[in-house]
């Protein structure tokens, strides 16, 4: 049943990338358990604005779990304590009256804080720009059976394509590694005939860019997969390793 709860929020506030930053404590009252986590922050911000204070800066866009803009490390988890959802899909019914909630930005050298809870995730775009695409226009939708694609490949490609580029995998990783993201973005294309042609070049370029940008080396702990809002499997990392190694050995 819906009810209203009172909460204590510990929110990371940081004015600029260079600012040291620190936690601020806020009390919020009468939060509906039917509201979403971002609505909680909206309520907080309204309260802050009414008090003449600066609102908390946080990323968001679609608010339905598809754009990958929302982030937030909540009570020890990227995207909060629920599994396989984004922060914008997290509901306040997951919390109890009187709870204290810690709200922090993604922490990784690859994702520097810009302001408060917003981090710079440009590095992901740079990795995509290095090869996460198909070079030629593949035309309109082809006839269903014109290019046969094994069902398993189609399924795995679709699963990989569900990655929304949010960066929770990096935020969860003790090595600051972006391998789950990169492997999903390489796999979604490499598994299909149109993308397969460039698979080797794509793997090499994306990994090289990822390394340049200072992301860490994957040690297969699997924290990324547990925290990924889209349940991307680290089997894609094995596929990327395979593709990358065989591409390099053929050089």
């Amino acid at each position: 049943m819906e009810k209203n709860i009172n909460l204590t929020l510990k929110v990371w506030r940081q004015n600029s990338p260079k600012d040291k930053g620190g936690f601020e404590t806020y009390q919020v009252k009468d939060i509906s358990t039917g509201s979403s986590f971002l609505e909680l922050l909206d309520v907080l911000n309204e309260q802050l604005i009414n008090e003449g204070k600066e609102p908390v800066a946080f990323d968001h866009d679609c608010r339905e779990g598809i754009c990958g803009m929302c982030s937030l490390y909540i009570n020890g988890h990227p995207h909060g304590p629920d599994s396989e959802i984004t922060t914008c899909q997290l509901h306040m019914r997951k919390f109890n009256d009187g709870d204290t909630i810690w709200i922090e930005p993604w922490r990784s050298a690859g994702f520097p804080v810009i302001k408060d809870l917003i981090v710079d995730r440009d590095a992901f775009d740079k990795i995509i720009a290095a090869g996460g695409y198909v070079s030629v226009n593949t035309g309109g939708v082809p006839d269903g059976n014109a290019i046969p694609i094994p069902k398993d490949n189609a399924d795995e490609s679709m699963d990989a394509a569900s990655c929304i580029g949010c960066g929770a995998c990096v935020a969860a990783c003790k090595n600051g590694s972006a391998m789950l993201f990169v492997s999903a973005k390489a796999s979604q294309l490499a598994l299909l005939p149109q993308g397969k042609v460039e698979a080797a070049r794509r793997a090499k370029n994306m990994v090289a860019r990822m390394d340049d940008l200072g992301f860490g080396n994957c040690t297969n702990t699997g924290a990324c997969e547990v925290e990924c809002p889209k349940g991307i499997s680290i089997a894609h990392i094995a596929r990327l390793n395979r593709e990358y190694l065989s591409a390099k050995l053929q050089d």
Binding site: Y73, N75, G76, R107, F215, G216
Partner: peptide, 20 residues
Amino acid sequence: QNRKARGSARYASGNKTKGV
């Protein structure tokens, strides 16, 4: 290298990821 890539900032709310 991995420690450097991770950076020095830690999560105040710790790491509660299960199954690792």
